[in-house]
Nucleic acid binder design. Structure first.
Lengths: 378, 378
DNA sequence: GTACCATATGAATCACAAT
DNA sequence: AATTGTGATTCATATGGTA
């Protein structure tokens, strides 16, 4: 059993005994040590926000290989291993209890997770009387695919944003969020790329320094939404220090807690390096305008082009029938509107939207229906 | 105190006593009554999928799950909230236990909820040994704005998709989902409008018949993804019968359970007016996994790929020769098309059907010859 | 300099039937 | 029950090399 799990296990629901005087709140520092022990040294009701990216308890099995043969570099670190859900719950309860004690009454807490752990965390947050204000979905523009075709692409992670109690006051910079979103209310689903390229912190060997580094854009939006300049943000699972880096950039104070010396070193150097406002990172802040891409299947699903509909081309040379999954079929071919169109014309490619028409007295090109669908959305 | 709350309260964690003989599984019917009582009458391991849209425990001053009924004054608020969550958990545990008993071992369950209840539900699903396959985010194109500007627009709901146990087999129509999404893997975030307009079932007074009617497009995607035609879907919180209507349209059988006579009446009329798709329209892209297997040796035997044929990969990096028994051999390896392909690439595995091509001017992939062989059989 | 192509990789609970 | 063989399976980006 790893250290965190053992500590949580031994303590169970009990609040740890005070270790230090808890008189002073340090800031802009990394506290090197176990997150629960280090939190125990901090004063009551002293921080304005907590951002926590705890272990997800992924429970992965054996190796996973990509179709082309490569092996997926999975998160197999000891810090993500727990004996059971019960152990994970005990650990979560323990660090949440400390977090709650340290948080000001008008502060908020953010926790990020995936389906592996977020339902445990959400339940325990509610049990501890935190009041969920929103759950936020981070939609990844570039998630790892499901290589074996066994499930839906796991393309998002979830963040929970909670006040300390029902009815508690809290900071929400509504205007700033609206500004970030073209003067529309910021929604609970955020589209952002995963952390890669230059932003991803690398070790000496060129390999990623941390397996689960979060994008700065994510922390940028969170800190901008829920803190004022000068306020103090605590991150009990500091890792490579994304929270600290963004807090510094935005003029917030920060406290990081991290157990692994290697991560601490990397984070210190990262934050110390003056971070100029990176233009490329900023671009991801502003919501990319959703590409108005529509899958033909969505028109089928929504009933605009029901399964069984007969399609034909402008000159009525070929016909095909729409099937339940949005594929179409004629006597000789089946597949997408584009593939079947290409195959029939013996062409390398084909734009099915302009090629196919709903058959009937007057032909209606699919592209027109796509426009209808799009305008209904807005 | 309402019926559901009373039943959950009285029974706690206990499985309800059998009420009926549980011999027959009815289908294409609405069972009018409490969901737990009605589920208790259904046989063990009898349904292929469960879709559940349970009450959300909105805590908007409602007394839905308050055991003692009467109005609670402000002093008791904390206790009331705790009590409400506990009671909601007991209710959830009770209906999940029945759902689990009824579900086939290779069946799956879907549950939809919002942040008010989904973390309770997700935790309890895991506690009951259900195995989360994905959490799905329904992104609403037209959510209700946050009028007071105090939070992010709550623009999504969450669905949990679970197998009965870790490692259990389950149905996932991968190709059909890919077809619905323009030949890209279907992701875990789904964009759909809320149910409105013509689709929204209205009462005699023109008002919406049900406060939380789900869009048919949502059920369409779920049923298409996780069931085969003819399989049985149970919806223990049937409401206006969206699950039944879509199941009928897609040629799936269904069982609805609904307590409110008004909803039952509306659902019956709605489903009766829904027409099933005809056989051909219901077709979807077939999963290759379900195609009959062909041994490569059979193609050799039949003369389609005679012994001595030279094979090569798409980039002509390696060559091999077909032998009389359907094995192939190169300078360094001999064995099945798969084994030799894997060995040459130094990969853990290889699909010989798509790796090897008949050498010559224009390469022809073996998979194409396999298709020829298969279609010649029919 | 540019266009094109090949390669690498990201919090992943990733097969199944026959023997 | 454990082993073995067949064979199904990937999207968006970033980076680096070649033409």
């Amino acid at each position: 059993m790893n250290l965190i799990a053992r500590i949580a296990d031994e303590r169970g629901l009990l609040r740890p005994k005070p270790i230090g005087p808890r008189e002073f709140l340090p800031f802009n520092v990394i506290l090197e040590g176990d997150c629960i022990e280090e939190m125990a040294k901090l004063p009551d009701k002293s921080v304005d926000m907590i951002f926590a990216d705890p272990p997800y308890n992924l429970q992965l099995g054996g190796d996973l290989f990509r179709p082309e043969g490569g092996r997926v570099d999975a998160v197999d670190d000891d810090w993500d291993k727990f004996d059971s859900l019960t152990t994970y719950d005990a650990f979560t309860r323990a660090w949440l209890a400390e977090a709650r004690r340290i948080l000001k009454d008008d502060g908020t807490i953010w926790v990020i997770g995936s389906y592996h752990n977020i339902y445990r965390v959400g339940s325990l947050l509610q049990d501890a009387d935190f009041w969920i204000l929103n759950d936020i979905v981070w939609r990844k523009t570039n998630p790892m695919p499901n290589f074996r075709g066994t499930r839906f692409t796991n393309a998002h992670e979830t963040l929970l944003w909670c006040a300390k109690n029902e009815g508690a006051r809290y900071t929400f910079n509504y205007r700033a969020m609206k500004g970030l979103n073209d003067d529309l209310q910021m929604r609970s689903d955020w589209l952002m790329p995963i952390c890669a390229g230059q932003e991803r912190v690398k070790g000496a060997n060129g390999a990623k320094a941390h397996p689960t580094q979060k994008p700065e854009a994510l922390l940028y939006r969170i800190l901008l939404a829920c803190t004022k300049p000068g306020q103090v943000v605590l991150d009990p699972f500091f890792g490579t220090g994304t929270t600290g880096a963004v807090a510094r950039r935005l003029g917030r104070r920060w406290i990081g807690i991290e157990r692994e010396p290697a991560y601490v070193k990397v984070a210190r150097e990262r934050i110390a390096a003056t971070l100029p406002l990176d233009e490329s990172a900023m671009q991801t802040m502003a919501d990319k305008r959703e590409a108005p891409r529509v899958a033909f299947g969505v028109l089928v699903e929504s009933g605009l082009v029901p399964p069984g509909t007969a399609l034909t081309d402008a000159k009525r040379r070929w016909t095909a029938t729409v099937r339940a999954d949005g594929s179409i079929a004629c006597a000789t071919h089946a597949g997408s509107i584009h593939k079947v169109g290409a195959a029939l014309q013996n062409a390398p490619s084909c734009n099915g939207w302009t090629f196919w028409h709903v058959a009937g007295g007057k032909l209606q090109v699919l592209d027109e229906l796509r426009q209808q669908h799009l305008s209904a959305l807005t």
